[in-house]
Simulated scan of single mutants.
Amino acid sequence: MWESQELKTREYREMRKTVEARIAEVERKVIVRPTTEVLDGLTAPNARESWKALEEDRNYQRMNAVMPLLFAAVKIKEATKKGRQFDYGRIDIEQHLIWL
């Protein structure tokens, strides 16, 4: 419609702004899954030691990339008591379907 001049510049820009906003919203929701390399060394019998090495190296980026592969969700229930102590019983961890 733009090329055949059925739209005025103002109309085109308004439509484009709407479409770009929709694209930006969808892109914010897209989850980029890490490749299998992120699990190298973490699935063998020495996985615990490999994880400790990541902690010692402060390789938080890789550790964070692994977490979504392990857990589908971590839900924290509403507090039932007041105070400064955190009640770990409020935490529900849903395993990722690939581990069930």
Rank of each mutant, 00 (worst) to 15 (best):
E3S: 06
M67G: 00
A65V: 03
Y88L: 13
W51M: 08
V32P: 00
R48Q: 12
R13H: 11
R13V: 13
P45F: 06
D40Q: 09
Y88F: 14
T80I: 13
D57Y: 11
E20F: 05
A65H: 02
D87I: 03
I91G: 03
N59V: 01
A72G: 05
R84K: 13
P45R: 06
H96W: 09
Q95Y: 15
Y60N: 08
A24E: 10
V38Y: 00
V74Q: 03
Y12H: 10
W2Q: 02
Q5K: 14
R16M: 07
G41N: 02
Q85W: 10
R84N: 12
A21C: 07
T9Y: 15
M15Q: 15
D57E: 10
A65Y: 02
Y88S: 09
K29D: 11
G83K: 03
E6R: 13
P45N: 04
K52L: 11
K17F: 10
W51P: 06
R16D: 09
R16S: 10
G41M: 01
K81W: 14
Q85D: 12
T43E: 09
E49Y: 11
W51T: 09
R58N: 08
K75H: 15
R13D: 14
L100K: 15
A79T: 06
L97V: 13
M63D: 04
E37F: 08
A47K: 05
L69V: 01
F86W: 00
L7G: 05
L42A: 00
E94Q: 06
R90N: 06
R13Q: 15
D87L: 01
R62F: 03
E49I: 10
W2G: 03
T43W: 11
V26W: 04
N46I: 07
E20L: 11
D40M: 04
K17T: 12
W2L: 04
T80C: 07
T18F: 14
M1W: 11
G89N: 04
K8L: 11
R28W: 02
E56H: 14
E20M: 08
N59I: 01
A53L: 08
R84V: 08
E37A: 10
G41I: 00
E6A: 14
F86K: 01
Q61G: 09
A72E: 11
Q95C: 12
L7C: 01
T43Y: 09
A24L: 07
I98T: 11
E27Q: 08
Q85F: 12
A79N: 07
R22C: 13
T43F: 09
A53W: 10
K81V: 09
D40V: 07
E55L: 13
V19M: 13
